[in-house]
Write a protein that binds this DNA or RNA. Structure first.
Lengths: 194, 194
DNA sequence: GTCTATATCGAGATAGAC
DNA sequence: GTCTATCTCGATATAGAC
């Protein structure tokens, strides 16, 4: 089974995605060139276009992949008590985002650089995720364990707070993730408690 | 007092800053060209360089101006009760940021596009502002009215939550700013209360 | 102070040989 | 599948006339 010299279909694809993720997160989509990405991957520019039709698709695919994975990974427990579901959401959110800081960063920094069509797709996925938290809050309000004037606003406030962790948390910093989880959970719990 | 035909020193300067603010916020620093800015201002590209040595300085000046204004506008009341000071901070933060959504957006989206020297300056200003809130929290912890495990982490959490408002709040939306203030204050107060 | 013209560079993307 | 070479375009920035 002779192969064409220099053929590496199975590894160049993933490497391209990884390099783009890394560079987009670090310098921003608009500031990164296909040439830079090619260098990081270790191929020439032309070769990249075997794996993506253009730069925009590269960004859109990264974001769609991230958001899809987020939604697939999250599993609500509609039968559990709202307080337990909220705690589960907070832990899930912090852990999931902690494991992919670059994808998270891109997902909310590069929305402006999506074409309108791609933006609509990402926005719909993001909205679905927010709905998950909003539902928990509404259920808790209905059963009297939570007290917030507007579940929609509280949802946005909590997600902004939780996602903000990725802007400063460092894996090799003084605090373990578990401690961050504990402290954020305290604040979230108290903020919405009845 | 004859003036050179086409001379508009006094208005082109401010217009340049305004156009850059608007375009950077909308499309991102790296995605905006000096040509676009010139078109928005209503002059040719070359004329812009009478007002800024280069594009980077334009960004840095906008950010420095914003952060300086933020720090100058905020006045703590160190003799007041921590709870009152916290409330004052929350209201100030929401109102100030509400009045300049574009500058706010740039201030935390374009940090990556600053040269290391400019970044250091902005970062120091940002740190000083965070310190203002952190001090309030520490004083409140000392006097027993607040209860959070770590004032530094709580500071970051609260600022992320409050600043997040600018990503979705619209002046012409269904909710007045006053209502937003009320709801966020409730959540902040409860989150850090003893 | 603004204009036109231009120098210099690097961008995204494609063609065709291997 | 990757390479080299290239097309086309637009970027930042500057020079010199008005």
């Amino acid at each position: 089974m002779a192969r064409t010299a220099g053929s590496h279909a199975d590894i160049t694809g993933p490497r391209l995605r990884q390099a783009a993720l890394h560079l987009f997160a670090r310098h921003g989509y608009a500031a990164v060139s296909m040439r830079q990405i090619a260098q990081e991957v270790g191929v020439q520019v032309g070769a990249l276009y075997n794996y993506t039709p253009d730069k925009q698709s590269l960004l859109a695919d990264l974001m769609k992949g991230h958001m899809s994975e987020l939604l697939e990974s999250y599993a609500d427990r509609p039968d559990a008590a709202p307080m337990d579901r909220l705690r589960h959401f907070v832990e899930f959110h912090l852990r999931f985002h902690h494991q992919r800081p670059e994808a998270v960063f891109i997902a909310y920094m590069e929305l402006r650089n999506l074409t309108p069509e791609n933006f609509a797709v990402i926005e719909a996925l993001r909205r679905r995720y927010e709905q998950a938290l909003e539902t928990i809050l509404r259920d808790g309000i209905d059963s009297g364990v939570f007290s917030v004037p507007d579940a929609r606003i509280a949802t946005r406030a909590l997600i902004a707070m939780l996602t903000g962790v990725t802007t400063w948390f460092r894996r090799d910093g003084p605090l373990p993730l578990q401690e961050i989880e504990r402290q954020y959970w305290q604040m979230v719990r108290k903020a919405v408690a009845a």
